[in-house]
């Protein structure tokens, strides 16, 4: 739930069209090519822009090492849910917009020569929200990581939390993925989660915060309740930097904040420390 967080979260759905873009962090006008070359990070202030799942794969994994899994999974509309448009139409529209059949991409690959199982949620597809397909893909990824005795890496970009359009079934995905992660843990497997902007609601309250290690990109919005929900409840001005990666680090919920360009190296190094 907490779909309100998406609109409050300032994530950009991809670097906007055109040659120049404006950084929401430092307000600088930036040459788009330059930002792209810097992994969608502002060269002036290090503001981390949105990064699509494919971009994450390119950036984290060794070249051509990714083998994608479970590409045939498709969401259904068990609730016959209608928001502004029927859910089944929304799914088609999102697929057209993003080129993804749903919000998660999973598979196997190598990080600096180390084999890993990886799962990524992409904010562009319905705010990265978790319905049955996202839950099933991540669960299968966790199960295969256990089977193959490989480190499991999830990258969360789920501002939408659990997907409202699949109702209670989305909530149950939280339990499903968690149960698979608990088995992975019991079997001695390593699980690292990388929090990116934004990670909210039911995703934050399940797999995103169940890692042996929790890393976060700088400035990511991470929390349980959306800002609007909190405002409606407490009517208090929210503190500066509330629910950011830095806020979570300060309160003890994140191991390290890692700049995007260093993620690959950091993850590889941590995998080495956790080898048996």
């Amino acid at each position: 739930m907490n779909s309100d967080s998406g609109s409050m979260a300032r994530p950009k759905r991809g670097v906007p069209e055109g040659l120049w873009i404006r950084c929401p962090g430092c307000k600088a006008s930036l040459f788009k090519k330059e930002v792209e070359a810097a992994l969608n990070v502002c060269p002036e202030c290090d503001h981390h822009f949105y990064m699509p799942a494919q971009g994450r794969i390119d950036q984290l994994l060794d070249e051509h090492s990714f083998e994608e899994w479970d590409t045939g999974l498709r969401s259904k509309d068990p609730l016959e849910f209608v928001d502004r448009i029927p859910y089944h139409q929304r799914l088609l529209a999102e697929e057209k917009k993003t080129g993804l059949p749903d919000a998660a991409v999973t598979g196997k690959g190598f990080i600096r020569g180390r084999p890993v199982v990886i799962g990524i949620t992409d904010f562009a597809f319905m705010a990265g929200s978790m319905g049955s397909v996202v839950g099933e893909k991540l669960t299968r990824a966790a199960e295969r990581a256990t089977e193959l005795k490989l480190p499991l890496i999830f990258v969360s970009g789920s501002g939408g939390g659990a997907r409202m359009q699949e109702g209670i079934l989305s909530l149950m995905q939280m339990a499903k993925v968690s149960a698979a992660l608990a088995r992975h843990d019991s079997s001695g497997g390593l699980y690292v989660c990388i929090l990116t902007n934004p990670t909210m609601g039911g995703v934050a309250a399940s797999w995103a915060l169940q890692g042996d290690l929790t890393l976060a990109e700088p400035g990511a919005l991470v929390g349980f309740a959306g800002k609007r929900t909190i405002w409606n409840t407490v009517r208090l001005e929210l503190p500066e930097g509330f629910q950011t990666s830095e806020f979570l680090l300060q309160h003890g919920f994140v191991d390290r904040i890692v700049h995007r360009r260093d993620l690959r190296t950091e993850v590889a190094r941590l995998i080495d420390y956790c080898e048996k």
């Binding site: 309740a225 909190i230 309160h251």
Partner: peptide, 25 residues
Amino acid sequence: AYPGIGAEERGQAQLIATSIFEMAR
């Protein structure tokens, strides 16, 4: 779960995540 500043500071998402994870086993 309570949506508030203190709840977020003390890790509302983290504690629910841990609870679900551990209850599974």
